[in-house]
Write a protein that binds this DNA or RNA. Structure first.
Lengths: 228, 228
DNA sequence: GCAAAAGTGTTCGTACTACACCCATGG
DNA sequence: CCATGGGTGTAGTACGAACACTTTTGC
């Protein structure tokens, strides 16, 4: 008996700006079809690696360039998650620097837009489920891998990093302890630049030293940020 | 253009006994085909949830009953991982109590057998890769989720638990500190039974209280076993 | 000189580490 | 009585938690 299963990929793309976590959604306008917002994604081509399929769809549909991309989970237990066909979807998890990102302009056929997590509408298929899984993964990874930097510009303020953690983990953090902990790792370096700010004391810009982090990991280093 | 991708599931089934970690492999004898050992698995049926597909294959091919089963990773980047067709495989990770497991008897068409991890031969397709990913997951999860109990009988000796951790994590552990830590969680209870042993002082049997663990998790409890 | 955000140290308590001896049984 | 594995306590240390004032700038 011939197998009748279609294989798709979907991507949950997170961005962060001004103490807000965003997710990138698209809306494809078919006539007569109710235009739910959805995660970017689509069918995998027969000769295409999964990861290439995600990258292609992201480029075609949103034109963003990602800093971090990893497989999240494969959704295939609900046989009717797509009402038209049996579709199994391999979901990916992506982080981008929202500040430098210019998302694809809206066309007649397609909208692309950032949504704050709290304002995400009902999505197509089981995409709300996928998003929830991605948020869970993001929160978990933030505490044991230095992926927060992939949501920030290459040079960033300490206060941005701190706010990012507060925002995403939905916790209050002691500024002094946070700074001490992060600096103790030795994977963040001060640049000689200062941020131009509207008010208050000027802040130094910092940079994540990925080379150093990778080297330290090989020596057995574990990144970890925990809070009470 | 029609999509020509087949979807399969594979399972990495771990067992533990006498300070040895085992994985369950099968060998399907086709005539003329070189009989590589492989992970149990097979194609997903068109109307079948992924998880059901794994359970079905495990039952058909090995007849084991699993204590723990979770999705591991989806292997679909190597377009030629199966030389005959494009096959994408959703790999699962399973733990069973090897002591009570009676694996399916060998038939003319099929062998089923435990292999110690260090003695695993070259496997079919990219199954060695999948196994490596599963071992990594097992080691990681052991430190932050109480899944070790799923490799042991319902009632077990403390020394078994300790040896399980030593064996799988390939580390030495201080017996006193280990016992203190585990008992401090309050998720293990002493039974009034003693093990019948060949030599030495009789040992108490312990039992994992999953209800209590689940309740504690809801209250914010984190299981964690780390070693220097 | 005031508002606004950046930067910085110390104390306290808890939890991990290291470590060695006695106990209960079978043969 | 001896071999075998089971069971237990303590002292030192290091790390996380709590906590508030000074500094630099723009207006």
């Amino acid at each position: 008996m011939e197998q009748k299963i279609k294989l798709a990929v979907d991507a949950v793309v997170f961005g962060y700006q001004n103490s807000n976590l965003y997710v990138l959604l698209i809306q494809q306008k078919f006539d007569g079809q109710q235009p739910y917002w959805a995660l970017p994604g689509g069918l995998v081509q027969s000769n295409e690696p999964l990861i290439e399929a995600v990258k292609r769809e992201l480029k075609e549909e949103t034109n963003v360039s990602v800093n971090y991309l990893e497989q999240l989970y494969t959704f295939g237990d609900d046989v009717n998650r797509d009402s038209r066909n049996r579709v199994v979807s391999v979901a990916y998890f992506a982080l981008i620097d929202a500040s430098k990102t210019i998302i694809k302009a809206d066309t007649d056929a397609e909208n692309v837009q950032w949504f704050t997590i709290s304002a995400v509408p009902q999505l197509a298929f089981d995409h709300n489920l996928i998003l929830t899984a991605a948020i869970t993964r993001l929160k978990a990874k933030l505490t044991y891998q230095p992926i927060g930097f992939d949501l920030l510009p290459a040079e960033f303020l300490f206060s941005d990093l701190e706010n990012l953690y507060c925002t995403i983990l939905e916790k209050e953090i002691d500024r002094r302890n946070f700074r001490k902990k992060i600096l103790s790792f030795g994977i963040i370096e001060e640049t000689d630049k200062l941020a131009d700010k509207k008010s208050g004391r000027p802040a130094k810009l910092f940079r994540f030293n990925k080379q150093k982090y990778d080297a330290m990991v090989k020596e057995g280093f574990y990144f970890e940020i925990r809070f009470a």
